[in-house]
């Protein structure tokens, strides 16, 4: 798993923006993770406690907003959560569906003092 590299990126982003805002302390970091991004929150938190230790982000709270995967039927516009056995629309049975949510992987904001 690559949570270490990912955690380092989150920290870099947070510190850069905090410096730009002349902040003294980062209190929380708001992260959005889609279902298809395959990242484990707990491991990020674990690495965070190690990496952020001697930075102004020490002790900051990591808030994860999980976005469920979503598919939308191009036939009837029904939106549904995909099952890994089949990608057919549960409403009309159509096979013509598109992924509309779940790729997200970003830092949305930080709270600073």
């Amino acid at each position: 798993m690559h949570e270490l590299a990912v955690t380092q990126s989150i920290l870099d982003i947070a510190l850069r923006h905090a410096t730009q805002a002349s902040a003294k302390k980062i209190t929380s970091i708001n992260i959005v993770i889609g279902e298809f991004a395959s990242i484990v929150d707990d491991s990020v938190q674990f690495y965070w406690d190690l990496l952020a230790d001697d930075t102004i982000a020490k002790g900051a709270q990591l808030c994860f907003e999980r976005i469920a995967g979503e598919m939308t039927c191009t036939n009837c516009q029904h939106a549904f959560h995909p099952k890994d056995i089949d990608f057919a629309c549960p409403n009309c049975g159509s096979q013509f569906v598109q992924i509309t949510k779940g790729d997200e992987f970003r830092v949305d904001s930080i709270d600073v003092e």
């Binding site: 590299a5 990912v6 990126s9 989150i10 870099d12 982003i13 947070a14 923006h17 905090a18 805002a21 902040a23 209190t27 992260i31 992987f105 970003r106 830092v107 949305d108 904001s109 930080i110 709270d111 600073v112 003092e113």
Partner: peptide, 16 residues
């Protein structure tokens, strides 16, 4: 005082 700094930056930006 706590203020919120909006960011909206992809986490893998540095790699990209």
């Amino acid at each position: 005082m706590t203020i919120r700094v909006p960011i909206v930056e992809n986490i893998l930006n540095a790699n990209d």
